[in-house]
Computed example of a mutant assay.
Amino acid sequence: MSKVTMYATAVCPYCVRAEQLLRRKGVTDIEKILIDRDPAQRDHMMAITGRRTVPQIFIGEKHVGGCDDLYALDQAGGLDPLLAAN
């Protein structure tokens, strides 16, 4: 299973929703980077994604986007293959 990294905040309903979908897909290990506790990580997230909102999700090296992007990827049938890739 591919590594999943999620830039998030401690209180974010979209982050919770995205994590729930990933858990339903069998992801057991999500590296969560809490940007509200580390401003340098927020700056890093914005630099690598060009976005300010959370969550920002990476599967392996691929930037998937936010919660809505994750759900759209799943509905299009692209999430399972991406998670299965090594």
Results as ranks from 00 to 15, higher is better:
Leu83Met: 14
Gly65Trp: 00
Asp43His: 09
Ala85Glu: 15
Ala8Arg: 01
Arg42Asn: 07
Gly65Pro: 06
Ile35Arg: 00
Arg23Leu: 14
Ile57Arg: 01
Leu70Asn: 00
Leu83Phe: 12
Ala72Ile: 10
Met1Tyr: 15
Ile48Val: 15
Lys62Asn: 11
Glu61Val: 14
Lys25Phe: 13
Ile57Thr: 04
Arg42Ser: 04
Glu61Gly: 11
Gln20Ala: 13
Gly77Val: 06
Asp38His: 14
Cys12Gly: 10
Ala40Ile: 13
Ile30Lys: 04
Ala84Gln: 15
His63Lys: 07
Lys25Tyr: 13
Gly26Asn: 14
Ala40Ser: 15
Arg42Ile: 02
Gly65Ala: 07
Leu70Gln: 01
His63Asn: 11
Lys32Phe: 11
Leu22Pro: 04
Asp68Met: 05
Cys15Asp: 05
Asn86Gln: 13
Leu82Phe: 06
Ile30Phe: 06
Tyr71Glu: 06
Met45Thr: 05
Asp36Asn: 06
Ala84Thr: 15
Gln75Asn: 10
Met45Pro: 01
Ala47Phe: 06
Leu83Glu: 08
Met1Gln: 14
Thr49Asn: 09
Thr5Cys: 08
Leu21Asn: 11
Ile48Asn: 07
Arg52Lys: 13
Pro81Leu: 03
Met6Arg: 03
Lys3His: 12
Pro13Gly: 07
Ala72Phe: 08
Gly78Val: 05
Met46Lys: 15
Ala72Asp: 11
Arg24Thr: 13
Gly26Ser: 14
Ala10Glu: 15
Thr28Ile: 15
Gln75Cys: 10
Arg23Pro: 09
His44Thr: 10
Ser2Glu: 13
Arg51Phe: 12
Leu73Asn: 02
Asp43Arg: 11
Met45Glu: 04
His44Trp: 12
Thr53Pro: 02
Arg42Phe: 03
Cys67Gly: 04
Gln20Phe: 12
Asp68Trp: 03
Gln75Pro: 04
Tyr7Cys: 00
Leu79Phe: 10
Leu22Ala: 10
Tyr7Pro: 03
Asp29Pro: 07
Tyr71Pro: 02
Asp74Cys: 08
Ala76Asp: 13
Leu79Gly: 05
Gly77Gln: 07
Thr53Trp: 04
Pro55Val: 03
Ile59Val: 15
Val64Ser: 00
Asp74Arg: 06
Asp69Gln: 01
Pro55Glu: 02
Asp74Thr: 08
Leu79Pro: 03
Gly65Met: 05
Val16Cys: 07
Asp38Trp: 08
Leu22Met: 14
